[in-house]
Design a binder for these strands. Structure first.
Lengths: 324, 324
DNA sequence: TTGAAAGCGCTACCAT
DNA sequence: ATGGTAGCGCTTTCAA
């Protein structure tokens, strides 16, 4: 591979001059510039990004840490991040943390050793201390890790409340809730939204809430239990789409018709929700937009641009489909 | 961040000695080693991978180029690649090509400029020349780009044939096929498998094959057309799962019951197929395994280890579920 | 067993 | 306007 030296030699100038035309920085005479450009073309020269990174102390790369890219929420996010990063001249390194603290810290270290410019992270285990110790621009998606740290979240509570009210508006009389993973902030928030919506209902008791793990399997069990306790439930708000699907599966197993006997609404708006049959009514997050925003905010941060805002709460949208 | 110099200073030795203990290479006295290790711990020193890369001429990262991580086939592949790479000490840079030649070449260049050790690619547009010009270890998934280039594929034809025979074994009398994107090799192969299975059927004509684009929308239209032409069709083999889902949607639109009046079988075994309702019968590829294998083969190649094999054809597995 | 120093490819400072 | 060169942090010869 041709290096800057080869270009300089062929053009009959110094490497300094080549560097100047490469970066379009400093004075370069018209004549020299042309010679250099010609040599670059002839040698098909591409600057070595690693050498640049060593000098600049950053590598034009951003790290993306997600729990698991196979979780249907994240491909769209990853795509948005990669699209935006690529447009702005950055590569993205993909990391699957499995919500495991050790893995997460290991990735953080590796990313730092590789001089990433910044990191986008979706995590429920990361602490403010870890981030401060790292001393690299970070933006957090879906959870506020600490005050002041740039964060992109959605209206979890509001969306949950809307979902529950929607079920009521459809004439549902007894509405249960399948809560997300215990300890996860957005699960609490969504549960809070549900609670507000049903607080005044005479029938409501805590037993209308059952715990799931944000996956389909846990939700099938949870739904069976819930429906066992309260056979009169005719509407379920699940804290995410995968659990909504689980609820529908459980309903089929129990011989209940969806939506006739049981209406189900989810949360997230993953692609799956619009593809499955019957199509799922859900409170959709603007996932792509979140990834885009996270990336531009991160890049602003990396480039030390003044930030008007550091905490973004995006709107969710209730999409009515077939399960309600 | 502490550098090797700081460690050397603190330990009272030269940077050469520190480097030796870091890499466990060359002679280091017991006493020096201990001093160095102590200093490393105390400073929480982590070697700068970029500096290493500059010297070594590779960066311990591999590029993964896929058409679109949002396509449900790829998250599992990406996960497998990342898991395996991470285990072997490599990072992975994610690239979405959109099957666009220019984007693809741009990524190839960027990856090379970043000294990636190797690349895993799933592409229908990449040519043997591009790869040779690049001069970086590459393995191709899902398509043989050129003889000799390490390749991981599945038994497309065999699987397609099995799918069609399976429909017959279920008593289906008229079986249509929704073909994948024109010009894509695996689409041809799968179509070939279907053809072999129905060649002897007296009813068979080319009009039982209709073209889709490997996505749901195209398949809905294609299915409506197919069923319009041949209302007697009672079984459909779609060249991938998304198109199978499209076929099912079209059937619902037309008031046909699945599987009673129309059996549908897909291909790929994406997660979606087991989650949707009704669960989809499909010919599953061992996607995770393919990613794993691709990565280990690539790493062998990068490390110049002798390769027994360069072309791997993996078995597919017919999974019977609810749509047949 | 250890250290000095060259060099990986590039940028930016300082001269001229 | 241009060139020489130090230095980014590391590895690896070469000498001692």
């Amino acid at each position: 591979m041709a290096s800057i030296k080869d270009v300089a030699k062929m053009a009959g100038v110094s490497v300094a001059t080549v560097s100047r035309v490469l970066n379009d920085k400093g004075y370069v005479g018209q004549h020299s510039r042309e010679k250099v450009e010609k040599a670059i073309k002839e040698l098909n020269y591409k600057p070595n990004e690693i050498a640049r990174s060593l000098f600049k102390k950053h590598s034009n790369t951003i790290g993306l840490i997600v729990p698991d890219i196979m979780n249907p929420y994240f491909p769209e996010l990853a795509r948005a991040v990669e699209d935006t990063a690529s447009k702005l001249g950055y590569n993205v390194i993909l990391c699957n943390s499995d919500e495991n603290k050790e893995k997460e810290q290991a990735y953080l270290d590796v990313l730092k050793q590789n001089y990433v410019n910044g990191i986008i992270v979706s995590s429920n285990t990361l602490t403010a201390e870890q981030i401060e110790a790292l001393n690299i621009p970070i933006v957090s998606i879906d959870r506020e890790i600490s005050k002041g740290l740039p964060t992109i979240v959605v209206e979890n509570k509001k969306g949950a409340k809307a979902a529950t009210h929607f079920l009521k508006s459809k004439g549902r009389k007894r509405i249960g809730h399948i809560r997300g993973t215990a300890g996860v902030v957005n699960a609490e928030e969504r549960c809070g939204g549900y609670r507000e919506a049903v607080a005044e209902e005479p029938w409501f008791t805590e037993s209308y809430i059952v715990n799931g793990n944000y996956d389909m399997e846990s939700s099938i069990d949870a739904t069976r239990e819930l429906l066992g306790r309260h056979p009169d439930i005719d509407g379920i708000f699940a804290a995410n789409d995968m659990m909504a699907i689980g609820a529908i599966k459980a309903a089929y197993q129990l011989g209940k018709k969806v939506p006739e006997e049981l209406a189900v609404i989810g949360f997230d708006g993953i692609v799956l929700s619009s593809v499955m049959i019957p199509e799922l009514t859900t409170v959709a997050q603007p996932i792509y937009e979140m990834g885009e925003l996270a990336t531009t905010v991160l890049v602003n941060l990396m480039e030390q641009q003044p930030m008007e805002k550091t905490y973004y709460t995006l709107e969710v949208e209730l999409i009515e489909r077939r399960t309600t």
